[in-house]
Amino acid sequence: AAYAKSEKVSADLVALTYGSFVREIIKDFEEPDQVNKELEKLGYNIGIRLIEDFLAKSGISNCSSFEESAEIISRVAFKMFLGIRATVSNWNSEHNSCSIIFDENPLAEYVELPPEYTHSLFYSNLLCGVIRGALEMVQIIVECEFVKDQLRGDDTNEINIRFKEMLQEQVPWNDEE
C-alpha cells in the first residue's frame, strides 16, 4: 500500500541510466574489485539519505531488531523502491545472518556482462550499499554482499546480510547542567 503513494518511472529508463553509470565507473576504476567497492560506496550514500524518505512514506517507526529490519527491507522496501518482490531466508542458527532473495532485478534488465567481468563484477552492488547505509541510520551495523547474481548465470539474486552490532543512541550533552 505504501508503494502506491509515489509516482512511477519506467524501469527501462532506470536500467538505461544505471547501465551508463556503471560503464563510466568501470572506465574510471577498471579493476572489478574496485568497481564493486565504488558501487557499494555510492549505494551507501543513497542509503543514508533514503532511510528518512522510507520511514516517512511507509509509516514504519524505527526498526528495533535486525530480524525485523531484514523482513521490512525485503517485504516493504524492495517493493516500494524497485517494485519487486523479495523474500528473506537462509537464517543461520545464531540469527545474525540472512539472505534477501529476489528474482527480478530492474537494474540489470537487458544487461550482458563482458566475459572478463562475469565472475568478478557485482553489477548491482549498489544495492548492498543502500541496505548498509539505510540500516546504519537506524543504529544497525551490517555487512552485505551478493552471493548469487543472475548476470553470472545463477538461478536468482541473493544478497547476504550479516549483522555486526547495534549502536547506542548518543544522548546529546546538556550544557546547562
Partner: peptide, 21 residues
C-alpha cells in the same frame, strides 16, 4: 512495462551528480 518509484530514479541521478561533479 515494469515501473519503479520515482524516488529511486531521483536518488540514482543525485548520486551521479555527486560522482561526476
Amino acid at each position: 512495462m515494469t515501473e519503479v518509484a520515482e524516488e529511486s530514479f531521483d536518488f540514482l541521478v543525485m548520486i551521479m551528480v555527486d560522482y561526476f561533479l
